[in-house]
Every structure is written in C-alpha cells, then in structure tokens.
Measured scan of single mutants.
Amino acid sequence: MASQGTKRSYEQMETDGERQNATEIRASVGKMIDGIGRFYIQMCTELKLSDYEGRLIQNSLTIERMVLSAFDERRNKYLEEHPSAGKDPKKTGGPIYKRVDRKWMRELVLYDKEEIRRIWRQANNGDDATAGLTHMMIWHSNLNDTTYQRTRALVRTGMDPRMCSLMQGSTLPRRSGAAGAAVKGVGTMVMELIRMIKRGINDRNFWRGENGRKTRSAYERMCNILKGKFQTAAQRAMMDQVRESRNPGNAEIEDLIFLARSALILRGSVAHKSCLPACVYGPAVASGYDFEKEGYSLVGIDPFKLLQNSQVYSLIRPNENPAHKSQLVWMACNSAAFEDLRVLSFIRGTKVSPRGKLSTRGVQIASNENMDAMESSTLELRSRYWAIRTRSGGNTNQQRASAGQISVQPAFSVQRNLPFDKPTIMAAFTGNTEGRTSDMRAEIIRMMEGAKPEEMSFQGRGVFELSDERAANPIVPSFDMSNEGSYFFGDNAEEYDN
C-alpha cells in the first residue's frame, strides 16, 4: 500500500510504541512475548500442572481467558453494579484439565481477579502490559475465525453469508486497541457500523446529549479505520460520505453494504499476525530463551520457528480426527482463516481442507461434555516452508469459486491468482447506482469489472525454506488448481455463540 510509510507498523501498534527502528520493534515485541511466557509459567505453578498438562491447549485457553477477564475493567465495573446470582464479580476462573488415573478430569478453578492481575503485572515488570493482553485477544479471535462461520451475524446486519472472507476479527472485544483495529476485516468494521446506525434509528437519543457526542466521535473513528483499509480513492470518498452524514440511517447502511461487497474484489488491507497460545510461549521462556534479547516478529519467520520446536497437546472428542484438529489450530496460529487453501497447503506441506470436510468441533470443551471418553493427542503445528504475512489485500483475480465463501483475504505475501467468483459478486451490483453516491458507485463498479483474471497478485513473492531466515531465496510455489480455494466452501461450520 502506498501510504505504508505514514502508518505505524503493526509491531508498533502491538507494543504501543512511538516510531521505533526494526531492532527496537523486535525487542519490544519480544518483551511482550516474554511477559506472556513468564505469566503462563507462574500460572502453571499456581495450578500445580504437570509439564504435559501445561502444554494442553484447553488449559492455555482457560488461563488466557482468566487474565483477560481480570483486566476487563468495563465488564468488571458492570458486574459490580449489576450483581447477578451466583456470579462473584471479583473472581474469575474456568475449567482446568488434569490427568488422573490414566483419565482426563475437569476441575473448575476460581481465583481472585486481583490475584491474577498481581501475577500478570509481576510477570511483566510491574506494568499492565496491555500489548500482551491484546495479543491474547487476537489469538482467540484468530481461533474463532478458523472455527466458526459468522453466517447468522452477517444475515442479521443485512449482509450476504458468502462475504465471510471479510469477517476477520469479528469476535475481537471493543477494547483491543490499535492492534485489534489493524486485524479487523472490512466486513467486521461494516458490521460494527451498521449495528451502531441501527441503534440510532431505533433509539432517538442515541446521537443526542453528552453521551451522543461520545457516540458520534466513536462512529467517526470507526469510519476512519474502515476508510484506511480501502485502497481505492472511490471507496475512500464513499467512506467520507458515510462519516460526514448528519443523521446516519438506511442510506448509510446501503452504502456500507455496497462497500463491503466491493471489497470482495477491490480488497481492503487487513493486517495478519501470528499470535500463538500462551502454552507455546511459556515452555520456550522456561527453556531459557530470551525473546527480548533475541527479538521477535509476528509477521516473519519467528512464529514458524517457534511452532517448529513446540509440543502442544489437545483434548480430542471420541469421533474427532486429531489431524483435522491440528489443521484448525495451525490455521489459527498463522492467522489464515480466509487465505486461499492452495497457498496454505503449499506452505504447510500437507493438504489443507475446507472447514466442512474437517471432523472436528471447536477447541474448547463445553462444561456439560462427558470427560470419560476424552483422549488427548499432539497437535501437528509444523510447516514445510515459511512466508511473510501481508497486510495488503493483493490485486484481484477471477477463479472458480464456491457456493460458500466467494473470495479470499490473503494472509501471506505469496504470488498467486486470487480466487473470487466474479459473476456471483457482480450480480449483486445491478441497477442500484442512484442517489448521492452514484458517481462513486459507478466508478467502483467500473474498477471491479476491469479486474483481470490473468493478473498475478504479489508478483514474484515466494515462500522460503525454514533454514532461509533472511528470506534470501524465494520459492514461487505451484498450486494444484483442481483443489478448492475457499475454506468455508459450501460450508456447515458451527455458528459462533458468545
């Protein structure tokens, strides 16, 4: 993207840094990872977990959730003011799984939030270390993106479920800051804005008074975040219109849905970061690795190297396929839920299948599930090659597409044709070009129609051997075009429920 120079890199967003050079960025990201790792080690000690239990991804998720809940100030305040039966607002906890007599047992633990905050700050040299908290939120978000298709949420806001490739980060909490905003897809931002506008339509006082002023500035800020994701002048001009509207209503909703559809071809720039579970960072720190000293990046080879040398386990339900569970977590670790499966298959070195073909449910185990038949197995999170994460949407291309997802959002900077089903997408653009945004709409449609099938995206960008740390010898991959490109292809993934 041309304006790259004016933006802070995501590592800076990730670490609240002012302008830093590459070495400083690597050190501050490393410091953040160190903090998460030290916190995780301490929690495993508190909970008396064995090494194996500490490497269980379900335990990692519970521990991450506990610290996120302990620092969720708004919710904590709300819980104190609106006490609900049987919930102690000062405590947080969740299921911890232990191996007892050759069987997995679930144990519900409860801790004072104050105590968890103390352990977290102690692991982070006394700081609140917001960057580390956001990092864990993005890992949870990436896992949700890989596990669930947001059909219901899309339909509720009037969008087409086939636009799911635009929904990265749709389950990120509001408090995820600049680093969170960077990884949100165009569809996620559109959905947040539509929800806001709908509230304004239904509630006369939404934009009024002292609160209304705050609401208005939040609305304009979200519009600017979305505008910054678009790469064409016409899309940005249309966002200006939406932002400046005196009284946002149905016309703005129409414009936003139009823009979301246009992003299936004229893709937005959305950041991709490899955020790993805390149970990967903990053992690495415990083994003596100093992330701050060595430096770390979320968008280069580092996460690949770390996963190459990590042992992570997962509980497996009786009829689940461990290899499929591994694929789910591998995609989440690489922030690749909406990437082209052919690119992923090449990088991973084994075939990556669409969601609907995987015999696996989510990673988390519900409290009512029976533990008797639970097994555990090693997650295979290694890769054959590594590639640089991208934040450009890439230019655009036609490809055989599917009944489910009709476009992709690249996660890796790797040369390819970008699949999208042009006739299906263009069919949504018939007729409606009147109104105050008509010239911009016409211009956007013209650009979409001009998108050429034979153009290559990320020209000359390749993948790298894991021994090639400096990215000196790019390998331009070859793809098996007979395979499906979309992950949520004609899909039956479970729906995400809060």
Results as ranks from 00 to 15, higher is better:
Val29Glu: 02
Gly394Pro: 01
Phe230Gly: 02
Ile347Ala: 13
Asn224Trp: 09
Asn224Gln: 13
Ile365Asn: 10
Tyr52Phe: 11
Gly37Tyr: 05
Tyr487Cys: 08
Gly54Trp: 05
Lys91Gly: 01
Gly169Ile: 10
Thr157Pro: 00
Ala70Cys: 11
Arg246Met: 03
Ser245Phe: 01
Arg174Ser: 07
Lys7Thr: 00
Val312Lys: 01
Arg461Met: 07
Trp207Asp: 05
Arg400Met: 05
Ala271Ser: 13
Pro303Asp: 10
Lys357Ala: 05
Asn483Asp: 08
Leu56Val: 13
Phe479Ser: 13
Arg199Met: 12
Ser407Val: 01
Leu379Pro: 08
Glu455Asn: 14
Phe412Asp: 00
Val299Leu: 07
Lys113Glu: 09
Thr151Asp: 06
Asp497Thr: 13
Lys103Asn: 14
Gln409His: 13
Pro477Ile: 10
Val183Trp: 02
Val299Trp: 11
Thr424Cys: 11
Thr92Lys: 05
Val186Thr: 14
Gly94Pro: 04
Asp145Ser: 02
Leu61Ser: 10
Gly86Trp: 01
Leu307Ser: 05
Arg348Ser: 08
Ile63Phe: 05
Asn319Ala: 12
Tyr289Ile: 15
Leu154Asp: 01
Ser482Trp: 00
Tyr111Val: 13
Leu68Glu: 05
Arg106His: 10
Cys333Lys: 01
Gly282Pro: 01
Gly185Lys: 05
Gln308Pro: 00
Gln20Phe: 00
Gln20Tyr: 00
His324Ser: 12
Ser69Gln: 07
Ser345Arg: 05
Arg99Glu: 06
Ser217Met: 13
Tyr10Leu: 14
Ser353Ala: 11
Ile57Asp: 04
Arg102His: 14
Pro410Tyr: 00
Ala181Glu: 08
Gly295Tyr: 11
Ser165Thr: 13
Gly35Arg: 07
Cys164Arg: 02
Glu53Tyr: 14
Lys351Ala: 06
Arg470Phe: 00
Phe291Trp: 11
Lys422Asn: 11
Arg246Lys: 15
Thr390Met: 03
Lys98Thr: 13
Ser141Met: 07
Asn334Phe: 03
Ile257Gln: 04
Gly158Arg: 01
Phe412Arg: 02
Met222Tyr: 15
Val29Cys: 12
Arg55Phe: 07
Pro303Asn: 06
Gln327Asn: 12
Glu495Lys: 13
Asn370Ile: 11
Pro477Tyr: 00
Lys31Pro: 08
Pro410Leu: 00
Met1Asn: 11
Gly177Tyr: 03
Arg391Leu: 05
Gln4Trp: 09
Asp51Met: 05
Ser314Gln: 05
Phe458Gly: 01
Gly349Trp: 09
Arg150Ser: 10
Lys422Ser: 12
Glu294Lys: 13
Ala218Leu: 10
Arg436Asp: 09
Met448Cys: 01
Pro89Gln: 02
Lys90Thr: 15
Tyr52Asn: 12
Pro474Trp: 03
Leu110Ser: 01
Arg317Asn: 07
Ala337Glu: 06
Gly460Gln: 06
Ser3Arg: 02
Glu369Gln: 07
Phe429Asn: 01
Glu454Val: 14
Trp104Glu: 01
Lys98Glu: 05
Pro303Met: 11
Ser353Met: 12
Arg102Pro: 02
Val270Asp: 10
Ala129Lys: 15
Glu380Leu: 08
Ala286Arg: 13
Gly212Tyr: 06
Pro354Gly: 05
Leu56Gln: 04
Ser9Tyr: 08
Ser245Tyr: 05
Val329Thr: 06
Arg342Pro: 04
Gly177Cys: 06
Val242Ser: 08
Arg441Glu: 05
Ala234Tyr: 03
Thr23Lys: 05
Asn498Pro: 00
Gly462Trp: 03
Ala387Thr: 10
Arg221His: 04
Gln415Asn: 01
Ala27His: 14
Leu298Asp: 09
Leu166Glu: 14
His82Gln: 15
Ala260Asp: 11
Glu107Asp: 15
Gln122Phe: 12
Tyr496Ala: 10
Glu220Pro: 03
Met331Gln: 12
Ile57Ala: 09
Gln399Asp: 01
Lys325Val: 03
Phe489Val: 00
Glu64Ser: 09
Lys31Gly: 13
His140Phe: 08
Glu465Ser: 00
Thr396Ile: 03
Ser141Thr: 10
Gly349Ser: 09
Leu276Cys: 13
Ala401Phe: 00
Met105Trp: 06
Arg65Ala: 06
Gly94Tyr: 05
Val329His: 01
Val242Lys: 02
Leu68Cys: 09
Asp480Ile: 00
Asn492Thr: 14
Asn483Phe: 04
Pro410Trp: 00
Thr157Met: 08
Tyr385Glu: 01
Leu259Cys: 06
Pro354Ile: 06
Gly431Cys: 10
Ile257Lys: 05
Arg204Ser: 01
Gln58Val: 07
Asn205His: 03
Leu47Cys: 14
Ser413Cys: 08
Arg156Ile: 09
Ile316Trp: 01
Met189Ala: 08
Thr232Asp: 03
Leu47Met: 13
Met105Pro: 04
Met239Ser: 09
Leu307Glu: 11
Phe479Leu: 14
Glu252Tyr: 06
Ile41Leu: 14
Lys48Thr: 13
Ala427Tyr: 02
Glu11Tyr: 06
Glu494Met: 14
Asp240Gly: 12
Ile301Trp: 10
Leu328Gly: 04
Lys214Asn: 11
Pro453Ile: 01
Tyr148Ser: 05
Ser262Gly: 14
Val285Ser: 11
Asp128Met: 13
Pro303Ala: 15
Lys293Ile: 06
Met159Leu: 15
Arg221Ala: 02
Thr134Trp: 05
Arg162Phe: 11
Arg441Pro: 03
Ser345His: 11
Glu484Lys: 14
Val183Gln: 04
Ile96Lys: 08
Asp128Gly: 10
Lys7Phe: 00
Phe71Arg: 12
Ala2Phe: 00
Arg74Cys: 04
Arg355Lys: 14
Leu358Lys: 09
Gln20Glu: 01
Gln405Leu: 02
Arg26Leu: 04
Arg267Ala: 03
Cys275Asp: 06
Val109Gln: 15
Ile116Ser: 01
Ser314Pro: 03
Leu108Asn: 02
Ser287His: 11
Phe412Pro: 00
Ser467Met: 12
Tyr289Cys: 11
Lys422Thr: 10
Gly462Phe: 09
Tyr487Lys: 12
Ile316Arg: 04
Trp104Tyr: 09
Arg156Glu: 05
Leu466Ile: 14
Glu443Pro: 02
Leu79Gln: 10
Thr390Leu: 01
Met1Tyr: 11
Ala251Val: 14
Ala387His: 03
Tyr313Cys: 09
Gly169Asn: 09
Ala22Pro: 08
Asn202Leu: 15
Gln327Arg: 04
Met163Glu: 01
Met137Glu: 12
Ala401His: 07
Val363Ser: 03
Tyr148Glu: 01
Asp112Val: 08
Ser84Lys: 01
Thr188Tyr: 06
Glu80His: 11
Ser326Leu: 10
Ala401Thr: 10
His324Trp: 11
Gly185Arg: 09
Leu166Thr: 08
Asn21Ser: 15
Ala411His: 01
Cys223Gln: 12
Asn395Met: 05
Lys198Met: 11
Ser353Lys: 13
Ile116His: 01
Leu341Asp: 14
Phe230Asp: 03
Gly362Asp: 14
Asn124Ile: 10
Val408Arg: 00
Ser359Gln: 15
Leu276Gly: 07
Lys325Glu: 11
Gly404Met: 12
Pro277Lys: 06
Gly17Trp: 02
Arg204Asp: 07
Ala263Thr: 15
Asp101Gln: 10
Tyr496Val: 13
Ile36Asp: 14
Leu256Asn: 10
Leu328His: 11
Phe429Met: 10
Leu193Glu: 07
Gln12Ala: 12
Ala233Phe: 01
Lys351Asp: 03
Asp340Leu: 09
Asn125Cys: 14
Trp120Phe: 11
Ile201Glu: 03
Ser314Tyr: 07
His82Met: 14
Thr350Phe: 14
Gly187Ala: 15
Arg195Phe: 09
Ile316Cys: 15
Glu449Val: 11
Arg355Ala: 07
Met163Arg: 00
Glu73Ser: 12
Arg156Lys: 06
Met440Leu: 05
Gln459Ala: 09
Ala427Ser: 13
Ile36Met: 14
Met456Val: 08
Ser287Arg: 15
Gln168Thr: 05
Tyr148Thr: 08
Pro477Gly: 00
Gln241Glu: 10
Arg267Met: 09
Met222Ser: 14
Gln311Pro: 00
Val343Gly: 05
Asp51Leu: 12
Met1Ile: 05
Leu61Thr: 10
Arg26Glu: 09
Ser486Thr: 14
Gly485Leu: 02
Pro248Met: 04
Gly490Thr: 00
Glu210Gln: 08
Met1Gly: 10
Ile116Asn: 09
Glu244Met: 06
Lys77Val: 14
Lys452Thr: 12
Leu266His: 04
Glu64Arg: 11
Val329Trp: 09
Ala182Met: 05
Ser359Met: 00
Arg8Trp: 08
Ile138Leu: 14
Ala182Tyr: 11
Ala336Gly: 15
Asn202Tyr: 14
Phe71Pro: 07
Ser326Cys: 12
Val312Glu: 08
Ala85Val: 13
Ala337Leu: 05
Arg446Thr: 13
Asp112Asn: 15
Asn247Lys: 05
Phe429Trp: 04
Gln311Val: 09
Gln398Gly: 01
Glu244Asp: 15
Ala336Asn: 11
Glu465Val: 07
Val463Ile: 15
Ala286Asn: 12
Thr378Arg: 15
Val312Arg: 00
Asn370Asp: 13
Ile36Phe: 14
Gly450Val: 12
Met66Thr: 09
Met136Phe: 13
Ile57Val: 15
